[in-house]
Amino acid sequence: MRSRRIDPLRTISLAFVFVSLIFMATIIWALVDGSLPTLKEYGISFFAGDKWRPSRGIFGALPAIYGTLTTSAIAIAIAVPISLGIAIFLAHLSPPKIGAILSLFVELIAAIPSIIIGFWGMFVLIPLLVSFCPFLEKGGYTILTAGIVLAIMIIPIIAAISRDSIKAVPKSQKEGMLALGATDWEAITRSVLPYARSGIFGGVILGFGRAIGETMAITLVIGNTPGIVPLNEPGATMASLIAGNWGEAVSTPLYKSALMELGLALFLITLFVNVVARLLIRRMEKGAARG
């Protein structure tokens, strides 16, 4: 016999779920509402324009999109091999007793506020890079510098998720290879890594999503002058353009709206990237629970 008692908790908690949904829906509504002036004025040509000259009312998003993609690509190119090395080291090679502390060191990097990393980049890393790298003759505030700073910030994310996926691989997978006479390294690269690939891939994409949206650290080291330029010159990303110019844009409706439309585009891109990453990571976690 089914109980006919009503469940007040279900009703109340469901109400709060709808409040959460409203929070999330508000994000999209607010971004669209804020972008309406430029959406009406420029339409789709906003995303085709290759010039960003706010003083003359010319708003083209391409330079910022170019900056976002190049900085993120540089960051991924640097971070992926290093993160994979760290993940293999932490999951299979480091002494188990201090493994937790070593993992903590890597994860603490992700805890440092973006603004502090940015000023460290400005005061310490840029002078260092300029004195070592001959191709930074035009100064250290470049797309390349921003990519390096980004790499530092996303390594902990990619490394931690890759480590978890590698740890989730059944032990028999490696032991089988070792029993056949393979070395440690051969067993890891040929039987453990392929098994963990979807989780690792998810971690890389999640790191890419973070790189796209990272704001303060980039704003401080990229020079924040939007342009489609070589990597050793100053540029700007979508996020850095919004943060760096908000103060001067806030009194000009069209300028402000252009920054918000950049935000809308940034949001849609990160949404897509995060959906893909989370699907891959959830599949890895399910596999770990089963295996």
Binding site: I27, G213, T215, N274, A277
Partner: peptide, 24 residues
């Protein structure tokens, strides 16, 4: 679906939260 949505939303760039709060 809500659990997945929360996961996805945890990747929203912080600057976006600033814009949204400004508008609202």
């Amino acid at each position: 679906a809500m659990s997945f949505l929360a996961d996805v939303m945890s990747g929203v760039p912080s600057i976006i939260a600033g814009i949204v709060s400004y508008v609202v």
